[in-house]
Design a protein around this nucleic acid. Structure first.
Lengths: 197, 197
DNA sequence: TGCTAAGTGGAGACCCCCGTCCGCTTGAGG
DNA sequence: CCTCAAGCGGACGGGGGTCTCCACTTAGCA
């Protein structure tokens, strides 16, 4: 690959990440090309479809999520680990308007395996936190989906606002997730796992 | 207005409500017209723009919201009133995929006055619940915005799922809103009131 | 029943988006 | 410096959205 081509590719990817973050996935390809200072054709040679561009642009974030969970599993305090996972992922999501859509709609075929492995790790984390008595016993791993969907609702406003809102929302929720409360929430909706594996 | 025209108008409105609820505001005008058994032109004569159709279609729901708050102000138990407001509005929102968008994007000029009055009523409700010692003192009326945005994130899945998810989310949140907890959530983001007055 | 204004539906103008085609430009090895 | 494949950008096809225009139909009154 020629050096100018490589530079263009990198610039396109950077611009795509930036625009997806601030305006969501529905930003037109032409806008990305324009901001990156290239023509549409260049963009489409490197990334044959918009989907492929999205996938590549968010690969980094997905890896970060994996890392966050792995770190949490090494945390000696299970509750602290769980709390950190939820906080970090939610902040990531709130700071990036395209994140939720990329994760939800994101092309089940890819990272299909990775997703299930991540899910198992999270379930393990939840179990450990319950065993340590710090997490309420009726917490369901599917509650993570609930949190992510709810937190995703905060996107669409300027990043600083979304970030602050997310922090507050997550704080409220984590408070409810801790042990020691007596009111039971309604059961987990059965088919919630279909939404966001 | 001729009787057939009136019937057509009513049918269009009913179909619009139905489709907006199940598929969101991005449903094409042509789809509404087709399902209502009329041509596009008919639809556009009654509702000059898509926006006007949306506004009319959701007017009922907005009125319901007003009523819910008025009822709550008459409730002898302030906390019960506040809880009911949040629960009812969130269920309304979860059952209707277009509701959030219609409320958020909805055309600030209209019900501008009504909105502020509603907001004041809600603030009064919050104050009463705090005075009665049942609502945590650091609860902000802007937390309603937070709840609505978060709850709005649950839309986009089948109604039954969204409804169940909403119930669980709201239960978790209400638990944190009650007095008696010692952990303070981070401060309310200052500009959150710009999003959804 | 006949008249007419109100009502109607489909074609199409206009715009925005994704993705492709093709003739011009340019990096870099010999 | 010359060559040429790799790279490039803008024009364009196809699809789908909102909203308009206009010739035809019909409700409802006299």
């Amino acid at each position: 690959m020629r050096t100018d081509a490589r530079e263009n590719r990198a610039r396109v990817l950077a611009v795509a990440r930036e625009l997806f973050a601030e305006r969501g996935l529905e930003v037109p390809m032409a806008a990305i090309a324009r901001r990156a200072g290239v023509g549409v054709a260049t963009l489409y040679r490197r990334f044959p479809t918009k989907e492929s561009l999205i996938l590549e642009a968010f690969a980094e974030q997905f890896t970060i999520c994996q890392g966050v969970i792995d770190d949490a599993l090494r945390d000696p305090d299970p509750w602290h680990g769980l709390r950190t996972v939820i906080e970090k992922v939610c902040l990531l999501q709130a700071a990036d308007r395209g994140f939720t859509a990329a994760l939800t709609a994101s092309f089940p075929e890819l990272h299909a395996g990775a997703r299930e492995r991540t899910w198992e790790k999270f379930a393990a984390l939840v179990q450990r936190a319950k065993d340590s008595g710090q997490l309420r016993a009726d917490f369901s791993p599917h509650d993570l989906t609930l949190v992510l969907m709810a937190n995703g609702g905060l996107a669409g406003v300027p990043v600083e606002v979304a970030t602050a809102a997310s922090r507050r929302l997550v704080a409220y929720l984590l408070e409810s997730f801790r042990s020691g409360t007596d009111v039971l929430p309604p059961p987990v909706p059965l088919s919630l796992d279909l939404v966001l594996t």
